[in-house]
């Protein structure tokens, strides 16, 4: 692998549907943490809920085959099912915890996300969720493939070349990202956004001004969680459903992306997600290259490859201490209170 191909692969990440899915999840987390101050450490759980709800609905109910629905309607129905599942999940999480101190929400969300993962990967549910092997992509990609208006073989150029299916998924995923960004921009310049940001600063003060803080926090949790669920759907469209993809580590990567780009900024999550995946791919390629040159001695390639995740951890630590506002954040409007 030469240096150019490393750059090429890294550049390919900019437009990859996975990056889009992460951007979407990060935008959701930005609503939670950046704007409302909610410590949600279970964003991967929302993604898992969305992904499984979408895939299982498509496979089990299969409206295209059983009800004769057109594939677009079936797709929309599956998306709605994913959203409803995320809303219910958010309510279950929020009702007990949003009245408590922030770190309780953190513990409950991270625990709930892991409960989801353990549940979908248990052998007892293999018939529904596929157990630890997850669900095969071809079992739920039928509708979206049927909707694909692209008929050629490949699209794009350079590092951004993709098959017709991949290109179609990219279009859908990035459209959703743009819609989500506009939504956040509209909300955060409105009085609703003002209340949400006020709650982040001091919820008692906002309460003393007659706002139903609990209700607003719940709205924020549901909204950000819904984006997480849609991110989960976008995440599985280019691949299969694998339960261990939705582990705590994914939540932490989303946090890293958010803080990298800048919490409480509209475009921060987008920039952070793109940079995160480009840098991860680049460092991975670079370490591979160095390993090929014998820098790491007798170490196996995959062992050396772990170094980039060490870098992720160190970068997260440095970022949060030395530049907590991220790349796009305003110096005065730091992303942390307390």
């Amino acid at each position: 692998m030469d240096f150019l191909s490393i750059l090429n692969t890294a550049a390919g990440e900019i437009l990859s549907p996975t990056t889009a899915a992460f951007a979407l999840a990060t935008i959701g987390l930005n609503i939670h943490f950046g704007y409302s101050g909610l410590l949600n450490f279970g964003q991967a759980g929302f993604m898992a809920i969305g992904a499984y709800a979408f895939a299982i609905f498509t496979m089990m109910v299969d409206p295209t085959a059983t009800l004769g629905w057109p594939s677009w309607l079936s797709f929309i129905a599956a998306i709605l099912v994913a959203i409803v599942a995320a809303v219910i999940f958010a309510l279950i999480l929020g009702i007990p915890t949003l009245r408590l101190r922030g770190d309780y929400l953190a513990i409950v969300t991270i625990a709930a996300a892991e409960i989801i993962r353990f549940t979908v990967r248990t052998q007892d549910l293999t018939a529904v969720t596929g157990g630890s092997q997850g669900l095969r992509g071809q079992d739920y990609k039928g509708d979206i493939d049927a909707m694909n208006p692209l008929t050629g073989t490949t699209y794009g150029f350079g590092p951004w070349t993709a098959t017709a299916y991949d290109t179609w998924v990219r279009i859908i995923a990035w459209s959703l990202v743009i819609v989500a960004l506009i939504l956040v921009w509209l909300l955060m310049r409105s009085p609703w956004g003002r209340v949400i940001k006020g709650i982040r600063e001091d919820e008692d003060a906002v309460r003393s001004l007659g706002k139903n803080v609990y209700g607003y926090k719940m709205q924020a949790l549901v909204l950000g969680g819904t984006m997480g669920a849609l991110a989960g759907v976008m995440f599985i469209l280019p691949r299969a459903v694998q339960p261990d993809n939705f582990a705590t580590t994914m939540t932490f990567y989303i946090w890293t992306a958010l803080l990298l780009g800048g919490a409480a900024t509209v475009l921060g999550p987008l920039l952070g997600s793109i940079l995160f995946w480009v840098l991860l791919s680049f460092t991975g390629g670079l370490i591979n290259l160095l390993h090929g040159l014998g820098i790491f001695g007798a170490m196996t390639g995959s062992q050396a490859g772990q170094l980039r995740f060490v870098l992720v951890g160190l970068a997260l630590m440095a970022l949060v201490v030395f530049r907590p506002q991220g790349i796009l954040g305003n110096k005065k409007e730091l992303s942390f209170n307390v």
Binding site: Q306, V310, V312, M317, V320, V321
Partner: peptide, 19 residues
């Protein structure tokens, strides 16, 4: 912030162990 530092530390250490 410190909470997130511990998350970064956790990631870094964990993959260092794997290394």
């Amino acid at each position: 912030q410190v909470l997130i530092v511990t998350i970064g530390l956790s990631i870094a250490l964990r993959y260092f162990y794997q290394f």
